[in-house]
């Protein structure tokens, strides 16, 4: 389900994410100042760094949500600047919000997001099952879920709409210990199934144990910390 889409399997790209010397200016502020990073399929890459260093901007640049002034960024071989809509169809971004509708049930939310890409009922059922949302939880309105359950519903929505690259901004924020454990196991399973995951987080111990590679974003540039080059 999180496999790279068939039309993109032709070897047009070497890395799922390939960011080279990217400069992003927000207002007069250079949020990214020559950032470079490559991420391969199945990796979970932790982005750490101080507030305002450019972690969120790097995730948003990969999703084509901020204009790139200089440099080049590609996702699944697609240029983020010139093939923005195609990139977005393969990317799932969960920031501080989950993008859910609180009046709808868990199943209705996942079905809605799946239907934006024409996902079948079987795909939607599998997405919910993988996030542990089948059974009693599926009919509950999102408004009645815990923070952890909402986050899992949002991730199930990413699976249902076949996102290959997951961009998660502070995914552990607001979760209790149980919710964090649940989230980590879900992310590990997703990566094992082929999803590529980038996590921006301040929680180095928690996210560090989850990640297969750790990079720091400092003053708009990416610096390797562990697990290989940026």
């Amino acid at each position: 389900m999180t496999d790279v889409p068939a039309e993109l399997r032709s070897g047009r790209f070497d890395h799922v994410v390939d960011v080279r010397d990217v400069v992003v200016v927000l207002g007069a502020f250079p949020a990214l100042a020559g950032a470079s990073l490559t991420v391969d399929r199945g990796e979970i890459v932790l982005l750490s760094g101080p507030n305002g260093a450019g972690k969120t901007t790097l995730l948003r640049a990969c999703a084509g949500l901020v204009p790139i002034e200089r440099g080049r960024a590609s996702v699944l071989g697609l240029d983020v600047s010139t093939e923005r809509d195609a990139v977005r169809r393969h990317v799932g971004l969960i920031g501080h919000h989950n993008g859910l509708y609180s009046d709808l049930s868990v199943a209705e939310n996942v079905r809605f997001w799946g239907s934006t890409v024409g996902a079948s009922s079987a795909e939607i059922a599998t997405a919910m099952q993988r996030m542990g949302l089948d059974g009693r939880l599926s009919d509950l309105p999102v408004a009645r879920l815990s923070a952890g359950q909402r986050r899992r519903t949002a991730l199930a929505s990413l699976v249902a709409r076949r996102a290959s690259l997951w961009l998660l901004d502070e995914p552990h924020a607001g979760l209790d210990a149980e919710g964090r454990d649940e989230l980590d196991s879900v992310l590990r399973a997703a990566a094992a199934a082929g999803a590529t995951i980038m996590v921006a987080s301040h929680e180095l111990e928690r996210a560090g144990s989850l990640a297969t590679r750790h990079v720091r974003v400092v003053a708009g540039q990416v610096v390797p910390v562990s697990g290989g080059a940026a």
Binding site: A63, L65, R84, D85, A86, V87, R88, R89, V91, G92, L93, I94, G95, H96, H97, N98, G99, L100, Y101, S102, D103, W113, T116, R161, A163
Partner: peptide, 17 residues
């Protein structure tokens, strides 16, 4: 309000809908 309360409108655009 339905679209902005939990960031659904941005999620729709970020998903390339």
């Amino acid at each position: 309000a339905l679209e902005t309360t939990d960031g659904a409108l941005e999620a729709l655009r970020a998903a390339g809908v």
